[in-house]
Design a protein around this nucleic acid. Structure first.
Lengths: 119, 119
DNA sequence: TGGGATAGTTACCAAAAAGTAGGAATTAGG
DNA sequence: CCTAATTCCTACTTTTTGGTAACTATCCCA
């Protein structure tokens, strides 16, 4: 098991997959990146990702924050205001992510035509 | 729920995540890409990914085949021989994946130093 | 007095993913 | 005739993930 740990720490693919290979992380990063001000509040994200539950969104944001990809700024107001934005590390990921999305746009249309995955 | 389907079909991020955002897909693609001949047999992959179970590997390969990213060639011999390689679509993904890996190498070392995720 | 808004957390449950262990099929080789 | 090699499949169990609904806290407004 210690071997597994070493393997994880050494392998950038596993790092990447384990940190934002989940259902919502990339979507959140994308939303933050395309936001005009570069900043989004919790409920603004919720409204844009209607099929992500409140729990999943806050969990996702917490993970991204722990990975230093997203910055969380709390304003001690009532009602509370919390603003999320990309960190510099997060911003540095965006060109790659953008390419991945572009690749998806280019190549999955053809795939989807032959291959229905949802019902 | 039909909306969710439409959203999925329309969103390249979800396409990408749902097709190879899982635990093993990227690793398999990477292995196939870095193989000298561009071809790997089932047990060759197994030996290189010791912590992936037989079941997971064959499931992963099947998914990648269905997404037209991996080609599966069966030779009707005894004992059986099956060779896996990247399709053209799979190959077209590799530059992006390589960049993602490079990004991981560059940026996660610093993150890991501050932030232990495994125990 | 009693919503409403904001940003969560928690407990509970269901579904999906993944691990384990065993079997199947075929033929060559001892 | 028994074993090894190769590529799986299947049943069973455990672990992880995700969803639902209810709860918290605070202040403003009617």
């Amino acid at each position: 098991m210690a071997d597994v740990k070493a393997e994880y720490l050494a392998c950038p693919i596993r790092q990447v997959v384990s940190r934002f290979g989940d259902k919502w992380s990339m979507l959140v990063l994308y939303m933050l990146n395309t936001s005009e001000t570069g900043v989004l509040r919790f409920n603004e994200l919720r409204r844009q990702m209607t099929d992500c539950s409140q729990k999943m969104l806050s969990q996702t944001l917490k993970n991204l924050e722990q990975s230093h990809l997203v910055h969380r700024e709390v304003y001690p107001e009532v009602p509370p205001r919390v603003e999320y934005s990309l960190t510099d590390t997060g911003k540095s990921l965006m060109p790659v992510l953008t390419e991945l999305i572009a690749w998806g746009k280019e190549h999955f249309n053809e795939v989807i035509e032959k291959n229905i995955i949802m019902d």
